[in-house]
Design a binder for these strands. Structure first.
Lengths: 190, 190
DNA sequence: ACCTGAACACCGTTCAAGT
DNA sequence: ACCTGAACACCGTTCAAGT
């Protein structure tokens, strides 16, 4: 109460930014299990500085994802107000899968984060599930989707598909995702 | 040529068996990424002994799986000769998923092993895919399964489902698997 | 023929000391 | 207010020396 928010020191800000930039590069290359010491080294700071800014690996990943998450949530809200709910749901799932596959290991962090309230990624997992539920609701009203599918089901599917992207050929992963999404939708046969 | 196969020394045999027993226990507990040093310690041997018997982690996992794999392959051959191909395929998939989920991390080793001819698990991955293809063939002949599904698709699905078992609630994982298998089968509606 | 364990290179995490 | 880097505890992997 009455505590003034101090603006961070300029060097601290610069260090945080360099750490994020190097972490992004390294995680894209080697996945979210990559060495944190290597990231600090590449950013030109001591390992203690990395821990001062990001108390653990998930916090670092979470910071890296913040902007992309916001864009994803906004896109989800847009899609929810679209005329055709089936393509909207499909596009939503594809966007989230692409997101969850940006780093190898991220799908695991997300899947685990949904069930762990202490995870730095927990809130975004709940948001992804909630948006999925919303898209399903409208899709259900037009009979485009099977009636018993939940947002949690979609969240599970998205993580499994993202994981598959890192552990199967691109072709196999694409087939898996397409088949999974088809399984949610009610056959549009005459 | 003419080389006589030497029977291993009794102590070497005992060490290998203790290593396998402890590795199984530890892997069930902590997954296939668990410390090999810890396993050697628990088995009462030096770390070099573990490496002498099993040159790498995959070789250790592979040795552990040998018996279970044989049982699985035999079951697959049985199922292939069953009258009703749809339930046979379903049971096959469920058995393999249970197998691939015995250790956390095993689904990843299997998925990666399919594309890596150097992996100690490669041969069993190919066998699982081949048996899946056989079951699909007979299922296709009775029109029970979608015509474009391949053994590789089923293999991918099984790994994704096994991975999900370790990274979602049991209920979610079961729903995911059930929905995925349903997606393979042609609707049996009148 | 097999086993031991030191040796090397690496890592996560904390925290006293500096600026 | 922030940064440094030593300290501690741990690990994978190899290989010379022993039995």
């Amino acid at each position: 109460m009455g505590g003034t928010v101090r603006r961070p020191r300029a060097d601290a800000l610069r260090n945080a930014e360099r750490l994020l930039a190097e972490a992004d590069a390294v995680f894209r290359d080697r996945g979210t299990d990559a060495s944190l010491e290597g990231i600090a080294r590449r950013a030109g700071v001591a390992i203690g500085t990395l821990y001062a800014h990001f108390p653990n690996r998930r916090a670092l990943v979470g910071a890296l994802l913040r902007d992309r998450n916001d864009a994803l949530f906004a896109r989800g809200d847009e899609l929810a107000s679209l005329a055709e709910p089936a393509p909207a749901l499909r596009e939503w799932i594809e966007a989230v899968v692409a997101h969850a596959a940006t780093y190898q290991g991220l799908a695991e962090l997300l899947a685990d984060g949904a069930d762990d309230a202490a995870s730095e990624l927990h809130a975004s997992c709940e948001r992804l599930t909630a948006i999925s539920d919303r898209l399903l609701d409208t899709a259900r009203r037009t009979g485009a989707v099977h009636s018993d599918v939940t947002g949690a089901d979609v969240f599970t599917l998205m993580n499994a598909a993202a994981w598959t992207r890192a552990h199967a050929s691109a072709a196999q992963a694409a087939r898996f995702l397409a088949r999974s999404v088809d399984g949610l939708l009610v056959d549009e046969v005459g």
